[in-house]
Amino acid sequence: MSHWLRGAAAGYLALQAGKTVAALRAASRAPAAVEPADEDVARVVVVQPILSGDPGLEDALRDNLLSLAGARFVWLVDEDDAEGRRVVDRIVRSNGSGDMSAADLPLTVRSNGSGDSAPRIEVRLCPPAPDGVNPKLAKLQPALEDCADDEVFLVLDDDTRLPRTSLGALLGGLDRATLATGLPAYLPGRTPWARLVEQFVDNNAALTYLPMAPVTINGMCWAMRVADLRAVGGFTPILRNLTDDLAVAGAVQRGGGTICQTASPQWITTTVDSPGHYVRLLHRWMLFADLLLRRQPLGTVAAISVLHGTHPPLLWAVLVGSARARRPGPLVALLGGRWLLLQVVHRRVYGRSLHAPLPSLVSELVQPAHLGHGAVQRTIRWRTRIYRVRADDDFSPVR
């Protein structure tokens, strides 16, 4: 038993160390996080599909106006989202947009403020997406049509904060590739359920996105030149794909384009206020991961399964085996080595430790349950919508 336990712990740490080395090597080659030139920022169109419901929405939107000053913002709000319209209206008014109100206009309000230094904000009110059409992509296509070919189309989720230097990394990535995508990281949550989500992302993102050649993108933050996005047909060919990140990545690669994975973070704050909310969120992510794997070659599926599916079973084996054998040594060694390796990755990639030991451990132990849930339960709740998912391009609302 002791030899088996030591072997399982050693295997876990060897795999984790290998991924750490690969991630750090990729991070060292990624575009640098630098302050972008003002003229480059002025060509960026920050497009944000907005849906109310999270208490941090207004703060996140305002933070991006400050950090990305000089860019043009396009906020896409559902016509029937009264709270979302109130939030953006408050921001537009407070930034000197005069007497025009997003809540009063049928489609669009454009605001340049009372001076050249005010944020450039456009609010577009979006009708409901037809059945079988991705609501996020349906919002993005009209916004793309109003852009100039020499602009950069930057998609940013409404709960995501993009530091200015991370924008510099994305723009640097566009000098190397057709599409540049960011690296998600969560700010500390206020509830135990938020901490579990936070640790799931913070302990996996760099070790998942960086070591391998990109098979998808981080849908929370990515950028393309408008001309390149139009060259692959924009969003129209992929409107019926549920997973917008995978659909965009596939469109780029089918068109002969390339993807640059940056190693500069975008900071996310999402309120997760109940166990049900936590389970629904992880279920959706795992179902999307299942859809991704179904579209990959067998070799890629095997590599992803080994690199990212082996850790939780090994951790469970060492935890249970150590308890049954009353030999804590292998478990202590595994947890100590795991902590050290995560510290190294976090400090090198994010500039600080994001590791919370207990939530981190729990989030890894429950991953197999979430993965199984995503594989068998094909109905997801996506904010205010419920979908029955049969395939990435075959989904329908549940009424």
Rank of each mutant, 00 (worst) to 15 (best):
M1Q: 10
S2H: 13
A9D: 07
A9P: 02
G11N: 08
Q16T: 09
Q16R: 11
V21P: 02
A26K: 12
A26Q: 12
R29Q: 14
A32Y: 07
E35S: 13
I50M: 08
L57K: 06
A60T: 15
D63R: 15
N64F: 07
S67Q: 15
G70R: 10
L76Q: 11
D81A: 05
V88R: 01
I91P: 00
V92M: 14
S94N: 11
G96Q: 01
S97I: 03
D99R: 12
A102E: 03
S111R: 07
G115S: 15
I121H: 08
E122V: 14
A129H: 07
D131E: 15
G132I: 05
V133Q: 05
N134K: 00
P142G: 10
E145G: 12
E145H: 10
V152T: 10
R161L: 13
A169I: 11
L171T: 11
L174E: 06
R176F: 02
P188W: 02
P188G: 10
G189Y: 10
Q199V: 14
D202N: 15
A205W: 02
A206W: 07
Y209C: 07
P214I: 10
M220D: 02
W222G: 00
R230I: 01
A231W: 00
V232D: 02
V232G: 03
G233F: 12
G233Y: 11
I238F: 05
D244Q: 13
A249E: 14
G250R: 15
T262E: 00
W267E: 01
V272F: 00
R280K: 11
L291W: 08
L292C: 03
L292D: 03
L293I: 11
P297Y: 00
A302H: 08
A302P: 03
S305G: 15
V306A: 12
P313S: 11
P313K: 05
L314V: 04
L315G: 01
V318Y: 09
V320I: 14
R324A: 10
R326C: 04
L331V: 00
V332M: 00
G337Y: 02
Q343A: 09
G351E: 06
L365F: 14
L365Q: 10
H373T: 14
A375N: 06
V376W: 13
R381K: 13
Y387C: 05
R390W: 06
D393T: 08
D394N: 05
F395C: 05
